[in-house]
Design a protein around this nucleic acid. Sequence first.
RNA 1: GUCCCAGUAGCUCAGCUGGAUAGAGCAACAGCCUUCUAAGCUGUGGGUCGGGAGUUCGAAUCUCUCCUGGGACGCCA
Length: 560
Amino acid sequence: MEKHVLALQLSQILGEEFNRDWIYEHIEIPKQEKMGDLAFPCFKLSPALRKPPQDLASELAPQLKHDLFENVQPVGGYINIFLNQQFITEHTLKQILTEQENYGKHTFGEGKTVVFDLSAPNIAKPFSMGHLRSTVIGNSLANLAANYGYETVKINYIGDYGTQFGKLLSAYKNWGDEEKIRANPLAELTKIYVKFHEEAKENTLLIDEGRHWFKKLEQQDEEALRLWRWFKEVSLEEFEKIYQLLGIEFDLTRGEAYYNDKMDATVELLKEHQLLEDSDGAKVVRLDEEGIPPCLIKKSDGTTIYATRDLTAAIDRFNSYSFDEALYVVGHEQSLHFAQIKHVLNKLGFNWAQNVKHISFGMMLQDGKKMSTRQGKTILLENVLKEAIQQASDSIEEKNPQLRNKETVARQVGVGAVIFHDLKQDRRNDVEFSIEDMLRFEGNTAPYLQYSYVRAQSILQKGGFKVDASNPFLSDEKAWSLIKQIRKFPEATAKAYKEYDPSQIAKYLLDLAKTFNQYYTHTKILQGEQQDAKLTLVYGFSLVLKQGLSLLGIEAPEEM
RNA sequence: GUCCCAGUAGCUCAGCUGGAUAGAGCAACAGCCUUCUAAGCUGUGGGUCGGGAGUUCGAAUCUCUCCUGGGACGCCA
């Protein structure tokens, strides 16, 4: 609001040479509050107007007049503006009381659909920390897309196919123990899978045996199919436990194998477009013009490969959903793969290929290196979540043993800490796995945010707050800082989706909670004057914080 | 070898479409609970923004180059 007014006034004063949008883009919020609420740097105007920025600021400042502006001052080359706190406070809180949980929502995406590919664990393998990243980032992005107005479709594309399962079948035939697997499916299957790779170093025949079993699987061999289905079933049951803990649901869970009988059509299509070439006995699509290595479509033994399946799946998804965007939330080590997929789709003449995007993220590292299931290095998410919940539980016993719903709160806090730890930093960064960092409950963490929310709720309850848009509003220095933070929420949600970056929300919420806690410490809300006004502000804060946390997929307990 | 990503406080990270004195959290040290939940708040110390060069009135931010780390580079996904 105030930025638009400023941009409009400046553009009117300066004339057509500087348009509103350009000015709007360059309006800043001063780093230090004492300098003002808004600032415009005049350095950019200097070359065209041939005047020093200091002079421009002095000339322009007195000309800026509006009810929203309390005070306009030239400082150095800047025009610093102090806003009318009373007016903006009233406006903001009334807006929140009216819009409630719709505050901060957008309509840009209305009538459009976004398809998300997220989580995608591999069956017969434990749910690793790496899959956690895809799951929570993808889930948060889907929440943000919905907040943006989009229809969202969350697809969990289970890794249930490929040569690796040939290897697993081979491993099972050699060392499998049905009883043990029934008792502890993922751990036992992983054990024989790791053993397979260890043995294969000595015995290269095993690799051929693995390929052979995969071929049998492709040819619908009865035994291979039976075992594969069994592995899949027990794996999905294990995954479901984790999704329940995380509080995540999917619109569609579908394995790669679903596309087995649909890939021939894709291969045919590639042939029709004369894109398929032979190379060392395999079939590839050359991408020389794009400057990247060729995309492998069929292996020399005639079996398919993941690119073939991803192409088929992408085409199928477009046919099913006519998506406006398809986002693949997959680790950055697959960048080349998705670049290839996108280019091949493009060569096939699908103009929607430009809307297929790889939302990549950094890896979970251990000792600075990639974690690998094959070497048995994986850390199990389930154990980490259990540990997190346990520590949250210990914390409750120590700090608030009278608490009701202890188990629920322990889950919300523990799981929240794990999710937030992953979302708070830029998704592109690699992260070194550290259980200590992950389970920290103080400082820049989810428990800190949840605790701030709980404090607000406690006050609202004790103060008997009721939503009433006719409440009076107040403005003092600390309250004004909080109002300004609350007002940044809509912009933060918009930016977070535009950049596909949940960490924008996470950082915003930390700033917001920090400001609230300062207000809380310095102002006695349930004492003194203007209690209704103060309570309204607290309510506005708690509403925004809860909305923000839910965008990240984190629950906000009422007490803790 | 080619391509991609990163290097900011002891540690984990913000800031990167160029702007005012480079910010948080953790750790360290010093304070604040007779009153709204101390999972909190306040303060102190801590920086050649990997090195060098360039563009600019102005560079952590843009360009080039070098160093270091990570990743990818057809028959795994």
